[in-house]
Amino acid sequence: MIIYFSILVCFYLFLFLMPDHLWEFWYDQLRQKYTQFLKYTWQFKQLSSVYKGELLLFKLTMLASELNVGKVGSPIELHSYKFYTSLLEALLTYKRQFGISLTKILVPIQGGIKKDFQFEKKIQNELMGGIAQFLFVSVITWLFSFMVYKMVNLDSSWLTKIIILGLQILGIVFYCVIYRLHKIKQFKIFEIYFKVLFFMMSLIEVGLPSSKVLHHSGFEAIDQLTDKNFGIVNKKLKGLVDAYKNNGHQIKSDLAGLIEEIYFLQEERFEQFLKFLGLLKFVILCLFFLSAYFIYLFTLFSLFLIA
């Protein structure tokens, strides 16, 4: 107790008597490290699709403000986010060519971008949550190994440690790869539909001929989709397109309703995706992390028997 108190007093005296130039030195070092940390965090964040969506929405808000005061908006750099950026660039081109108003056209696009990156955020949170669970199990395994070593002075071989670490790393990599592939398989179709519908809804408002609207929207891609869950949506969309081509009917409100219907299907697909991720995490925990833990226990018991 006296030794602890003496060390504490010496430490406080050292802090009190430490020269100013040492304080400045440590302050500069900490500030540099913090700046580097923020730099790396910023670079990592720029890779996130969620961040790109948020940034594009912010830029779009600025663009709408400029358009309201009569500016074309071309000086604003639109960050790349899915098909929305190309749609906005096309609309700005038509505005410069034909002088059309984009105020009403941009409103549903803003809503679409907001819903899109919010959905991407939910998906990304599931990925990070799974990785956090795996890291937690890994830390528990290594802490248990360390405690056993301190208590009974028994330690596994380096080969065993490498195998355990390799299994844990492979588990996380396997989870990320399967997650990414399954995400593309389940949700890529929604991006195709949203692209077609948002392009059609916006270009119809511009006043382009029906042939150009269908061509620029990529409507022909719908015929290549075979997801049975979109059977009713396909029939509705093709019926609307036929009415638009043959009779020139205004279908913008119908397209907006179809977009909302697809959002509902997306939420249903997301629930299925969560169930798949739950099963995937359980399988990976059993195959990679629990197996790594049992390998350690096996080597530990072997050491006990030898001892």
Score class of each variant (00 low, 15 high):
K39V: 03
L56I: 06
K212Q: 13
Q29F: 07
G257S: 03
G171A: 06
F14Q: 00
I284W: 05
Y244E: 12
K281M: 13
L159C: 01
A90D: 11
I169W: 01
L197F: 04
V233A: 09
E66K: 14
E268N: 15
Q266I: 04
F294R: 04
C10E: 09
V9N: 11
E66Y: 07
L258H: 11
F190G: 04
S6H: 13
F5M: 08
V213Y: 07
G99I: 07
C286S: 12
S6Y: 11
F117N: 11
L47H: 03
H215F: 13
K183N: 07
G239D: 08
I192E: 15
N229E: 05
M62V: 03
G239L: 05
I131G: 07
K121F: 04
F58Y: 05
E271I: 08
L154V: 12
F144L: 10
M1K: 05
H215A: 12
K238Y: 12
Q32D: 15
L255C: 02
M62F: 03
F5Y: 06
L135S: 09
P108F: 00
S101D: 15
Q168C: 01
S156E: 11
N247Y: 12
K122R: 14
L277M: 09
L287W: 06
L181F: 08
V107K: 15
H215G: 01
G231T: 12
L55T: 12
V50S: 05
V283G: 08
D155A: 05
K150Y: 02
Q43C: 02
E54Q: 15
Q250G: 09
R31S: 10
F98R: 15
V50R: 08
G73H: 04
H182I: 06
L15D: 02
E89C: 07
V137R: 15
D116G: 03
L135W: 00
K39R: 10
S157M: 12
W142F: 13
L197R: 04
K188I: 02
A132G: 01
Q168A: 00
I109N: 01
Y27E: 14
T41S: 10
A90P: 00
A90L: 12
L214H: 12
G70A: 03
I164R: 02
I204K: 06
S210F: 01
L170A: 08
L214I: 11
K122Q: 13
F134E: 07
F294M: 15
K95W: 02
L60E: 07
K161H: 07
R269G: 11
I189T: 15
C10G: 13
G129S: 09
Q46D: 01
F58V: 02
F194W: 01
I131S: 07
V148N: 14
K104L: 11
L87N: 01
Y149G: 04
K121D: 15
I3Q: 14
